[in-house]
Simulated scan of single mutants.
Amino acid sequence: MISIFQLLIPLLAFVLMFIVGTGLSIRDFQLVASKPRSFAGILFIQITVIPGIALLLCQFSGLPQPIQIGILLISICPAGAVSNTYTRLAYGNAALSVALTGIASLIALISMPVLAALLISSKLDLGASSFYLKVALQLALFLCLPVCLGMLVRHKKTDWVNKNNRRFDQISIVGIIAIILAALFSHLELLKTTGLALLGAALIFTLLMMGLGLLTAKILKLEPRDGKTIMIEFPVRNLAIAALISISVLQATDYLLFAAVFALVQGGIMTMVIISSRYSTLKQSKIGGNYC
């Protein structure tokens, strides 16, 4: 199974990060420049507080090491592109979500190797400097390069990109589902013995990230629509990049098991958020229509 992962995961990560790049434009960077304090605060919390919470969860939970590494790995990843889809469906600020996902992905080229060396290499007794270089190389090839290529394609072929946006969303979702299924079916025995622990950790981590998103929005005094966007953005991590580091650097698939269960739990919760948001919007529109 590891050989199949080694072949497909880097390719899948490249494609998914290319799609992230096609969503970025000059307008997104202008949006960041127009609200530097808010964006800086949001990105800083993603880079520092989220991994910090993951580390505390690992230290006090007594979870098996593969699950702990999985939690730490997913926590240092940037937001995943599927957060943009969740945000649109929940009537959040899609432009803000796209900008955050894209900028966070570029910053991850610097932040992820540092965090990986600090948090993960020590738990696995790996050399921090060599581990840093391996992670940085993988991210340069399969995160930074495809994002930049996607931005270039968007700049040169804007109409084509806009025409295929829905298809890109579908590819992203199919790719994530493929990673989840592969991780689950390759570790059925481990899943049987640690299933409840995985579910509990995934649920707690998801709810903590959503709460952190709402708290961040309140501290930064964001509008309710933007607050909803941050609440969605924080728990949705980049599963493809987590899979890439697990397979290409750590050379193990069991660390992906938490990421897979986490994605399933998170998807269920986000579905409830979407249904609630759409119902609330529909109810308000009916009240407004009756009032008129």
Rank of each mutant, 00 (worst) to 15 (best):
L56G: 11
F44V: 15
P66W: 09
L109K: 08
I47Q: 08
G41L: 09
I74D: 00
S105D: 02
I103M: 04
L115F: 03
S105M: 04
F39L: 02
A79I: 14
S83Q: 05
I47V: 14
L100A: 07
G102Y: 01
P51D: 05
A81G: 10
S83H: 00
I50M: 14
S75K: 01
A99T: 00
G70E: 05
I103K: 03
I69E: 07
A117Y: 02
V114E: 04
L63N: 01
T101L: 12
I76V: 11
C58S: 11
I76S: 00
I69P: 06
I76H: 00
I47T: 06
F60N: 08
G102W: 00
G92Q: 01
S111R: 08
T85V: 15
S121T: 08
N84H: 13
G102A: 05
S122A: 14
A33N: 05
T85I: 15
R88S: 14
F29I: 14
S97W: 01
I103C: 09
A33K: 09
S105I: 00
I110N: 10
K123L: 14
F29Q: 13
A33E: 03
L31M: 14
I107Y: 05
L119R: 02
G41Q: 02
S111G: 09
V114Q: 12
I50T: 10
R37E: 14
N93D: 15
P64Y: 12
Y86D: 06
G92P: 06
G41T: 06
C58I: 13
L57R: 07
A95Y: 12
L43I: 08
I71T: 00
Q30Y: 11
F29M: 15
Y86W: 15
A90P: 07
V82W: 03
A99E: 03
I71R: 06
K35W: 09
L72E: 01
F39M: 06
P36G: 04
P113N: 09
A40K: 08
V114M: 14
I107A: 01
A90R: 04
I42C: 07
L73V: 01
A117M: 03
K123C: 14
A40V: 15
T101E: 09
I42L: 10
A108K: 02
V98F: 04
P36F: 05
L57Y: 04
L56S: 13
L57C: 11
K35L: 13
S75R: 05
L72S: 05
A90G: 07
L96R: 00
I47D: 06
C58V: 15
L118S: 10
P36C: 02
L106M: 13
I103N: 05
I67D: 04
V49R: 07
P78D: 07
P78W: 00
L63E: 11
K35E: 10
G62A: 12
L115M: 13
